[in-house]
Design a protein around this nucleic acid. Structure first.
Lengths: 74, 74
DNA sequence: CACCATTTGTTCGTATGTATG
DNA sequence: GCATACATACGAACAAATGGT
């Protein structure tokens, strides 16, 4: 991780890239907001924004109380 | 405007709709963050989020120090 | 059933940086 | 230099849903 934290858009890109590489496979669950915030050294609100972008793009689906998942199929 | 403020996604939808209707024509400028916040009775950060969504969708383009504009052509 | 911790999702207010005019 | 404006980040708070005890 860089000393200068990534922007929410860059975090979204990084996560999308990892999903594309199979790091988070279809049906798999992404780290929680708090974990992402910790992983990328950003606030929870910034982590939520990154996830929100992925959600809008359809890369992931969020389920309140459960987590954020990679859709099984397109 | 309703008593219950719209969400950032709904504000983005409303603005996109107005753009589609020609209320903000190609080449035209949208209200500033502060004006949108006032128009929809939300905070500036929520207004910025709505604009950010439109920007991601390509519906508008933002220019620092100048404003947010509707692209001339697709 | 009730209670509680976790998690998503949103809003707010403030602050900062950059760019324009 | 200054006012305006975009763009991002932060921390706090809250609602809603879930799942476990």
């Amino acid at each position: 991780m860089p000393a200068v934290p990534l922007s929410y858009a860059q975090i979204a890109e990084d996560l999308a890239s990892r999903i594309g590489k199979g790091e988070y496979p279809p049906g798999g669950r992404l780290p929680s907001y708090a974990q992402i915030a910790d992983l990328y050294s950003v606030s929870i609100s910034t982590a939520a924004r990154a996830i929100g972008l992925l959600r809008f793009r359809g890369v992931v689906v969020g389920a309140q109380g459960r987590g954020v998942y990679v859709p099984e199929k397109d």
